[in-house]
C-alpha cells in the first residue's frame, strides 16, 4: 500500500463514526496501543516541545526506508502520532519529504496540526520531513 492508499484507508475507517466522542474514543485506543518510548530514551534530542503536550520522536533508516517510533505525554496526541506513523513508517525518504498528509483534515483533526494547537505534532511532522530530506541529500 502506498502513502495515498494508506491515508484513504484511514479516512474510510473514520467514516463509521457518528460523533466526535466516538472518533476520539478510537484515537485514545490507538494511543494506548502505540508502543512507548522508554523513559531513558526520552532525551532532549528526541524531544519536540509543544506548549501543552510534548512529543518524542526516534527515527532510523534501513534498506532505503525510514522507520519511526514516537511517544507523547498526552494520549490523544499519541493516538494521532499512531495514525501519522501508520502512514509514513516504512516509506522512502523522497515520498515522506513530499507527502501531503491530506487524511488529517479529511478526518477532522486538522486543529491538532495547526500552529496554535501547540501540542508538538506540527513540530513532529516537520522533523519527520527534515529527517527524510537528510537521507535524500546523503544518498
Amino acid at each position: 500500500m502506498n502513502l495515498t492508499e494508506k491515508q484513504e484507508e484511514i479516512i474510510q475507517e473514520f467514516e463509521v463514526f457518528d460523533d466526535w466522542m466516538e472518533k476520539y474514543e478510537y484515537i485514545i485506543d490507538l494511543g494506548k496501543d502505540l508502543p512507548k518510548i522508554d523513559d531513558v530514551n526520552k532525551t532532549e534530542d528526541r524531544l519536540i516541545e509543544g506548549c501543552q503536550s510534548r512529543v518524542w520522536l526516534d527515527s532510523h533508516f534501513n534498506d532505503g526506508k525510514m522507520h519511526f517510533t514516537a511517544d507523547s505525554d498526552a494520549i490523544i496526541t499519541k493516538g494521532i502520532i499512531g495514525l501519522l506513523i501508520r502512514v509514513l513508517d516504512g516509506e522512502e525518504p523522497k515520498d515522506i519529504a513530499t507527502a501531503d498528509l491530506f487524511f488529517i483534515s479529511k478526518i477532522g483533526l486538522q486543529e491538532h496540526l495547526s500552529p496554535t494547537r501547540a501540542n508538538g505534532l506540527l513540530g513532529m511532522v516537520k522533523r519527520l520531513k527534515l529527517e527524510a530530506i537528510k537521507h535524500i541529500s546523503a544518498s
Partner: peptide
C-alpha cells in the same frame, strides 16, 4: 496520570 490537554480536548468536543 492524565494529561490536561486530553481532558481539555474531550471537554471541547462536548
Amino acid at each position: 496520570g492524565i494529561h490536561p490537554f486530553d481532558i481539555g480536548t474531550l471537554l471541547d468536543k462536548q
